[in-house]
Design a protein around this nucleic acid. Sequence first.
RNA 1: CGGGGUGUGGCGCAGCUUGGUAGCGCACCUGCUUUGGGAGCAGGGGGCCGGAGGUUCGAAUCCUCUCACCCCGACCA
Length: 588
Amino acid sequence: MFFSKLFAPTLRESPADAEVISHQLMIRAGMIRKVAAGIYNLLPLGTLVMQNVERIVREELTRAGAQEVVMPVVIPSELWRESGRWEEYGKELLRVKDRHGRDFCLGPTHEEVVTDMVRRDVKSYKGLPLNLYQIQTKFRDEIRPRFGLMRGREFVMKDAYSFHANEESAKEEYDKMFEAYSNIFRRCGLKFRAVEADSGNIGGSFSHEFMVLADTGEDEVVSCNSCDYAANTERAELKDHVSGQADHIKAQAETPEPKEVSTPGKKTIEEVSGLLGVPASKFIKTLVYDTDNGPVVALVRGLRNINEAKLRRAAGVARAELATDAVVEEITGAPRGFAGPVGLGDVRIIADFDIRAITEGVTGANKVDTHLLNVLPGRDFTAEYADLRTVEGLDKCPRCDKGRFEIHRGIEVGHIFMLGTKYSEAMDCTFIDEDGKSKPMIMGCYGIGIGRTAAAAIEQNHDDNGIKWPVPLAPYHVAVVLVDIKNDDLMEIATSLYYGLMDRGIPALLDERNERPGVRFKDIDLIGIPVRVTISKKTAAEESVEIKARGGEMDLFKYDKTMEEIYRLLGMVLPEQESKVTISSTPE
RNA sequence: CGGGGUGUGGCGCAGCUUGGUAGCGCACCUGCUUUGGGAGCAGGGGGCCGGAGGUUCGAAUCCUCUCACCCCGACCA
């Protein structure tokens, strides 16, 4: 590509609404432009990068034996009604009507469509396993799209779905996808971690998220500093480490009877802790939740946060939200801020394991302006115990019992998931097994956000000057900058190098714009091209070109060493028979 | 949806409190000079101030309504 022809409107300043660096740089580098909230145009540079991610995804999935298909964007409501998700999915599902008034939706994901496709034509175990994928535009009417391509409403996703005759086969495919995903993100030049994620209602621990580590990530992940356990903080487990230690039993025995203490107007743990001079870790935080199975009281240690997903699981409910003040008052007999587990009536109490470790605890007295001292779990109230608290750094690893958690922020670029028979049963996707019996297929699904992967790569690879693309994602691998554009001899050297690169399959950009060199260097850095070759009168006088890796130092190379050096910087090896090839020497 | 905020040339902003001819930087166009890290000078073009209604002799500015966008919360590739 000749830069003078390239549609890449670069900006010096970033638009005020771009928050994160990848969003800012994509706009400044002329890769994307916003059309509406969460909806973008991809300009040529953005398109090239997306194609690079897609190419890597295709290569790795093909190698893993998956087959590419294309499913529709507009999906009839009937399929979604069959799975029950037409009602369940909520407002994220953009529904439209056709001219006859029939209901359709824009596909946010394709379990229904692919299940329908497979059930029509696969009848026997002989047709299994099967892994079908597509790379396609999805639409999810997100409440709050943000961060450019990181969380758009319309976005390109690679979604794969596998079908199996039995669990073993499904697990095998899952492992294969795990491997393929690792290869994909490694090839994209990303530092990432596969972490355990919510397994949903089926499939044990068979769900992993692939997280690109970046401070701006929307997710938080923990990893053990001793073993290989890693999980999304939302899902990370903690074990019951506290029961039965000798000194603890002694402290329990020595805890005096509960005593009321007046705490007028002091509602928060911080306030009461300050007033009484008792550390917050002695507090039993008491939260009243409204669930679809009535109210539930949850207890966690002061300073710790409850994990509502864990609460939902422990309580066996689908919905749990903090109760309103009115409900709190009804359950505890006191206004918000003075709730405690002691003397509560007939209400379900679920406590975090850690609560059991408390002796001489402090909690609300279920009475206005009053708290209780010397509360001892087990003696003064009873509760069900479960893992309820959100993990934090330095918490003990539940797997190896030795290590401690480290916390990182991450961007979820991929998710692999065992679906089990949820869709195959709902939609009657069955096959005849070897034993002649009809069974529902076991399914897995596997997603990668293409644009999000590109954005994540920028989050991890940038500096003050702009993007620093990992070579496999770069829109062009090499920029050839001709400084003195009016000099025909130099132009010939530059174009000959440019075409030489193209002939070798190296995507190149020839910058022959009538701009001052500084402007052009800035643009090329901003766009993030990995290797820059500069040709000018000065370099030509030495029969050399100047080569500089993005972010590196510049060096002069004689014409016959040029290609070798470019290959080296791109992490490639010049083919043996080419080592003698030179770009055209100075014309006479 | 709840809470907060912003809408003024393509981009970044000022002007609004206290109504009186719409401004600055970048970008763009022309010319000259310049040409190794976002040039200088001179000239030039482009905005019904998000939209509708109202108050007023007069509204970017005050009032009402609306729309869009952004930020903080619960979802997700």
